[in-house]
């Protein structure tokens, strides 16, 4: 069978459309903007309200998707000069390129979504072995040591609750992305300190920001490839 040059090019174009490049969702946090109000925790509040994350009085058993760490604890003692030591840094799941949690999960309950790189969690498959918590170098994962529902003061019926015995974490708001919205933390930030988008798309705001500003990540020496960037 002979194929004309024109038909060949048309086929190529169709293939390119069919196998479009996967997106790579990423976040950049501009710390100088974030530090305009060092007492602000609105990102964490918005996230935890939107996802029915309970507030558990026993700090040792708390569940958190996004929270603040001191600069030196997030980036290591030797990265924190006097100008930044003690300053609060918002930290969350990094949705790594090479997520250790996904590698160690014995059931595939946590997995990396091919289409956009989100590290997802299927709480219905999780056996609660907590291997992912041992593996995550960023402390991004929380386990439901008891029934979380009894600690929920308000309930958002639009989002599922979890039950005891499973692990959960930040999802980059996959449910909001599906509706064309930004993640809850990004949207609520009064200083627009967080920028979120497809880093694989050169025209996106996040890609432009990462091209023009120096960005750094947590524990780059581990090779996990975090998709949460910090700018200062």
């Amino acid at each position: 069978m002979k194929i004309t040059r024109q038909a060949f090019l048309a086929l190529l174009a169709a293939a390119a459309r069919a196998f479009s490049k996967p997106r790579r969702m990423a976040m950049a946090i501009d710390l100088s903007k974030c530090w305009k109000d060092r007492g602000c925790t609105r990102c964490a509040q918005a996230c935890h309200a939107a996802h029915n994350v309970p507030r558990i009085p026993d700090r040792r058993r708390e569940i958190k998707w996004i929270w603040e760490e001191r600069f030196e604890n997030a980036f290591g003692q030797e990265s924190a000069g006097p100008a930044v030591a003690g300053a609060p840094v918002p930290v969350l799941c990094n949705h790594c390129e090479h997520p250790a949690c996904v590698q160690v999960c014995p059931t595939g309950a946590t997995f990396k979504r091919e289409s956009d790189g989100l590290v997802m969690m299927d709480e219905h498959r999780c056996i609660g072995c907590r291997y992912c918590m041992a593996a995550c170098p960023y402390g991004a994962r929380s386990f439901n040591w008891s029934d979380p529902r009894s600690f929920l003061r308000t309930l958002d019926p639009a989002y599922p609750t979890r039950e005891k015995g499973v692990v959960e974490k930040c999802t980059f708001c996959n449910e909001r992305l599906a509706r064309g919205q930004q993640p809850a933390c990004v949207e609520v930030c009064p200083f627009k300190a967080m920028v979120f988008g497809d880093a694989a798309d050169p025209s996106s705001a996040i890609a432009q920001l990462l091209r023009t500003r120096h960005a750094f990540r947590r524990k780059p020496e581990l090779g996990a490839g975090p998709n949460v960037f910090y700018i200062l």
């Binding site: 040792r60 058993r61 708390e62 569940i63 609660g128 907590r130 918590m133 041992a134 402390g139 929380s142 386990f143 439901n144 040591w145 008891s146 029934d147 005891k164 015995g165």
Partner: peptide, 12 residues
């Protein structure tokens, strides 16, 4: 739940 043990978020 495993809240009855001494384990925690940090010591999983």
């Amino acid at each position: 739940g495993l809240v009855l043990t001494g384990m925690s978020r940090d010591v999983a």
